[in-house]
Structures are given as C-alpha cells and as structure tokens.
Amino acid sequence: MLARQRQEAILRGIEDDGGVRVSDLVERLGVSDMTIRRDIEFLAGKGLVLKVHGGATAVGDHPIDEPGFWVKSAMNPVQKSEIARTAASLIGHGQTIAVSAGTTAYAVAVELRPVKRLTVVTNSPRVAELLYDPVREDQNIVLTGGVRTPSDALAGPVANRMLADVHVDTLILGIHGIDLDAGLTTPNLLEAETNRLLIAAARKVIVVADHTKWGVVGLSTIAPLERVDVLVTDAQLDVEARRLVSDKVGQLIVAKRDDTPGDQADG
C-alpha cells in the first residue's frame, strides 16, 4: 500500500470516528508500527491531524466537542494512572460507591478491583464489565440504564430515574472540564443531568481530573467547585491553579508517581 493510500485511510478514520489508534491501523493496513507513526507525523506536520499518545485525532477540537472513549484514554495515561492509584486508596472495604463514566474514572475502577465487599453503582458499561466477576460473592455491581453517549456513559431519563432513589457513601467522578467560575462542566447535556444526580446520591464526592482539564469549560455546568469534597489531580497542575482551586474544594490531593504519598491541601 502506498503512503498516500495509508494517509487517506488515516484521515477517513479520523473523519468517521474522531480519532485513530496506531495499533488498530497496524492490524488493518498490514504495515509496521513505525510506518503508521511516520504517516501520522507527516499528516501532523501538514496540520491535518493532531498527534495524541497512541494515535491521532482531529485538529481544532473545541471544548464543546467530545472525542470517543478510546481517544481520550490515550491522553495523559501516566497522569491518569497516578490519579487512579491515589483516588482508589481513599476507598475502604465494604463501601457503597458510585463510579461515573470517563477514562479517569475507569482507571480508578481498575485500581478498585482488589477492594473487598464493594457495592458499585455506575453509568459506565465499561466499568461494570471491568468489575463484574461471577466468582466473587463479595461484590455487587449495579449498572444504570440509559442512552449511550460518545464518552461511553449511560445518561438520560432512564438513568436519571434509577439514580434518583440511590444513596452511596462515595462518588468517583470523572469530568470533561474544571474551571474556577464555571465549576465542573461537560459538553453533553444528557450527561450533565445524570452526573448531577450521581453527585446528589453521594455523601462524599471525589473528582478525578488531570491538569489538562483545568480551564476547560464545556457546554453545561454539572456543579460548582464548592460541591467537591476531594479533588485528585496530578503534579503538572501549576502552583497558582492549585492555590485557586484549594480555596474552593474541600481538599486538594496532588497524586505522585510510584505510589508515594500525594500532597494534600484543605480548602
């Protein structure tokens, strides 16, 4: 296959799905990983695509737009892993928790698998599938119904009716954007209302968000920062942003690598 044909296939994939992954292209086009990466480099140099970890996405995405789950999962994977380990350490055995959709919340769910006697309510089919284990009798996984969104959340009236009667100890909430004035935001109106109900159901709200979410404002506000009990982020959030957000949330925890304790600041 000629380079021009490969590059056209990459562009078509981005147009159709919002992004492409190197590993998928290697399998589909029958060429090497290095060849695909060179094609993406070429297209990025022409300003036609935006390189992300593990693939490429469309250029000029606006905060009101939302790429698919796997495109977002390839963004800042190291920071998400750090945040996930730290957030999961805040969940004790025997708790009833809710876990929202989103790639960072999914990363937390990965770290929650060893925790015993959990009841987990989630509007993420991926989280439910990850945590469900038919041989474990100490876990109860509850998946809401609803309409599936681009970020692989179940949202809308069906999910909302179910969540209206739910009460959990703690919510792990992934978000699209976090802003001092706009608060927690999402580009998806259906998800906004469902996330509000997740927050209302929880005695404690833990928001997990890497530094790139700071200053991003989506179409709809989910909740003000004051509603956040704990915000777990990564060390690349700048000092001024930490100071500002610490004044709003109950507690700011900056995750560290290699399971070292995170920095904590009370709001």
Rank of each mutant, 00 (worst) to 15 (best):
2 L>Y: 14
3 A>I: 11
4 R>W: 09
7 Q>R: 15
8 E>L: 10
10 I>C: 00
12 R>K: 12
12 R>C: 02
15 E>N: 07
18 G>W: 01
20 V>D: 06
24 D>I: 05
24 D>F: 03
24 D>E: 12
34 M>F: 12
37 R>G: 09
45 G>L: 08
46 K>F: 08
51 K>E: 15
53 H>A: 13
56 A>Q: 11
58 A>I: 09
58 A>Y: 02
60 G>R: 10
72 K>N: 06
75 M>D: 00
84 A>Y: 08
84 A>H: 06
85 R>Q: 13
94 G>V: 07
95 Q>P: 11
98 A>F: 05
102 G>S: 13
104 T>A: 15
106 Y>E: 04
106 Y>Q: 02
109 A>F: 13
110 V>L: 14
110 V>T: 09
112 L>C: 10
115 V>L: 04
119 T>F: 01
120 V>C: 09
120 V>P: 07
131 L>H: 00
131 L>F: 00
135 V>Y: 06
135 V>T: 08
138 D>Q: 05
138 D>L: 06
141 I>R: 01
142 V>C: 09
143 L>F: 04
148 R>E: 12
148 R>H: 08
152 D>W: 08
159 A>Q: 02
163 L>N: 03
165 D>I: 06
167 H>V: 09
173 L>A: 03
175 I>P: 04
177 G>K: 02
177 G>A: 05
178 I>G: 01
179 D>T: 02
182 A>V: 04
182 A>F: 02
182 A>G: 11
184 L>G: 03
184 L>N: 05
190 L>R: 12
191 E>I: 03
194 T>W: 13
195 N>H: 14
199 I>F: 06
199 I>A: 06
200 A>Q: 12
206 I>C: 08
212 T>N: 05
215 G>S: 14
218 G>R: 01
228 V>S: 11
229 D>H: 12
230 V>M: 14
233 T>V: 05
238 D>V: 12
245 V>R: 01
245 V>Q: 05
250 G>P: 11
251 Q>H: 12
256 K>I: 01
259 D>K: 12
261 P>E: 05
263 D>C: 00
